[in-house]
Every structure is written in structure tokens, then in C-alpha cells.
């Protein structure tokens, strides 16, 4: 956490599934990178690149969550999926605007993304986390030591993850 961070991760955001938490941390980190890029005027191209990576990673992350919901017969699946789709549509519209019009990524937008993520984790994702436990999958709540080690020492050709 530096003074310029937009979003400070804390364990209060945990949904009790480490794989999901770790992905949320990546999203938080990308949001913070975007914040710095705008704050320090790194230029349009840089902030656009971070936004695109954020969008791509979000898509991967949603795919995992939705897959787990489907596999565990989560009753809230449809509503949750709809929330994901609505966000992705908004991001897509933004990307389109950045392509076609002379608009820039604003602090307002950053705060919108941050607030969306905070609320989504605290309400929707935590509800799914509770369902995951109830479905008898508590043993998968945490990574194994081996996985932890692999994640620490592996090089990341996709820069994040």
C-alpha cells in the first residue's frame, strides 16, 4: 500500500475461497496501477493498456466464479451472472468510447470501478463463499502449500498471474 493507492486490500474482503481472494487481489492491484497512471500522467496509451488488462483479467475471473457457481448449483447464479454481464457491458462501452471519441479515463470512473468491486465482493461474492462452505467444499477454501510455493516462484508470462 502506498499513499497513492485507491484501494487497500484487507482480509475483511475475504470470501473464504483463497483462489477467488487471490484473483480479487489482482483486480485491486490493477485498479491501483490504473490510479497511479492517471494521477502521475503516464499518458493515454499506458492507462488504456492497464484498463484493457483489467478488463481481460476480470473476464477470466468472472468465468471462474460462474463456473464454480454452476458446478455447485448455486441458487443465486443467474442474478450474480447478470451483475457480471452488466459490468462487462459498461466496460465495453467505455472501451468503445475511448476508441472512437476524445474521452479519457477519469477519477470518477476509477471510483465507480472501485465501489462496484467493494460492493460486489462484500454482498454477492461473500454470499457465494458461504454457499461454497455449505456445499461441503471447505477443504478447498485454502490453497495447498505446494500451490502457494509455485505461485511465489513461477515467472508470469502474462505479467499478472
Amino acid at each position: 500500500m502506498s499513499a497513492t493507492d485507491l484501494f487497500k486490500w484487507s482480509d475483511d474482503f475475504s470470501v473464504n475461497i483463497q483462489e477467488v481472494d487471490e484473483q480479487h487481489k489482482v483486480l485491486v492491484s490493477l485498479l491501483n496501477q490504473l490510479h497511479v497512471a492517471i494521477l502521475e500522467h503516464h499518458g493515454k496509451a499506458t492507462s488504456r493498456e492497464i484498463l484493457d488488462r483489467l478488463a481481460e483479467y476480470t473476464r477470466t475471473h468472472f468465468m471462474l466464479e460462474e463456473s464454480l457457481m454452476r458446478l455447485t448449483h448455486y441458487p443465486g447464479f443467474e442474478i450474480h451472472k447478470q451483475q457480471h454481464e452488466e459490468l462487462m457491458t459498461q466496460v465495453q462501452t467505455l472501451q468503445h468510447k475511448l476508441d472512437k471519441e476524445n474521452t479519457t479515463i477519469t477519477f470518477e470512473l476509477l471510483h465507480f470501478l472501485k465501489n462496484w468491486l467493494v460492493q460486489h465482493i462484500n454482498d454477492s461474492d461473500k454470499r457465494f463463499g458461504a454457499h461454497f462452505q455449505k456445499a461441503g467444499l471447505g477443504q478447498y477454501a485454502a490453497w495447498t502449500k505446494e500451490v502457494e510455493q509455485t505461485m511465489k516462484k513461477k515467472k508470469w508470462w502474462w505479467k499478472f498471474w
Partner: peptide, 17 residues
Amino acid sequence: FLFEESMMRLTHYVGYP
């Protein structure tokens, strides 16, 4: 690949690395 690797980490697959 990201999706597959997620499922491997999640289900504690020893062949993951």
C-alpha cells in the same frame, strides 16, 4: 490456461506445477 490453472489450484492438484 488461466481457467484450467484456477481449477487445478482450487482442487489441490499435485500435478499443477
